[in-house]
Amino acid sequence: MLELVDLSKKYKQFYAVKNLNMFIEKGEIVGLLGPNGAGKSTAISMLSSLVEPTEGDVRFNNKSVIKKPAPLRKVIGMVPQEVALYDDLTAEENLHFFGRIYRLTGAQLKQRVNEVLEIIGLTDRRKDIVKKFSGGMKRRLNIGAALLHEPEVIIMDEPTVGIDPQSRNYILETVKRLNKEKGMTVLYTSHYMEEVEFLCDRIYIMDKGDLIASGTKDEIKRILSAEKTISIQADRLNDSFISKLKQHPTINRVIAEEKEITIMVAKEINMFSTLIKIAEDAGIELNSVDIKTPTLEDVFLHLTGRALRD
């Protein structure tokens, strides 16, 4: 239904997005994952016709929408990364205004405003001024404003940043419900692995403007099928231990944190006794050694050598 073809955006000499290829089919929940500055927002701004791409094409039902965005705009709902609302208006007035600019009128408008307030759980706060809302409530209203015209596709740019777990769960459940009950197609952008793992059928992972992996959850995790992740915990880690790990021929990757070290090794190798020995040599005592099932976080780690969140 929606397709990005070799899409690039260049700011001066710098590519915010480079040669991005993506597709979204009707009824899917697609995740777009990446750390800060990966180019997620830039990519979906081009997708939603807000930013003109430097190169490449955006296609909706096989037609380019770069020059003629109107048909695409009609069917998409965009939830921007920032809360894009009028602070001085009430929840209801905001929804009323955004409904009006989508040309809803009269009884239909009223009904949609009520429905949306119900969906985002703000019916009893409808008369309150947005300025007085909590972060989570603003986020919910931010989503509601994109739902008024019953879009076929909803594009959400990190809709849960900086809010409490309760609001976050509410939003995730809402997205899932919209997809199940209304058949709404969703593009969900985030840098939270858990959210994307929980919601999405298919996932794209971006870093520094490039697409570094894509596929279903399982497909992506299979990237790691040849490796396993081992987490080592100790009270006092020292440099000697870390450098010994790094020098060890069977260990592919070492990521050291304060009290925890994550290493990646080939699946078939049994590291347990080796690790104990290295620890003894370095003079430290291990608290625990866990073999973890791979997460998307590990995939990112594997692909970039960096953690997804700094």
Binding site: K74, M78, P80, A84, L85, I101, R103, H149
Partner: peptide
């Protein structure tokens, strides 16, 4: 600045 203008543009106004 608050991207409300983007919303207006996206509504085909």
């Amino acid at each position: 600045k608050m991207y409300v203008f983007d919303r207006i543009i996206l509504a085909n106004v």
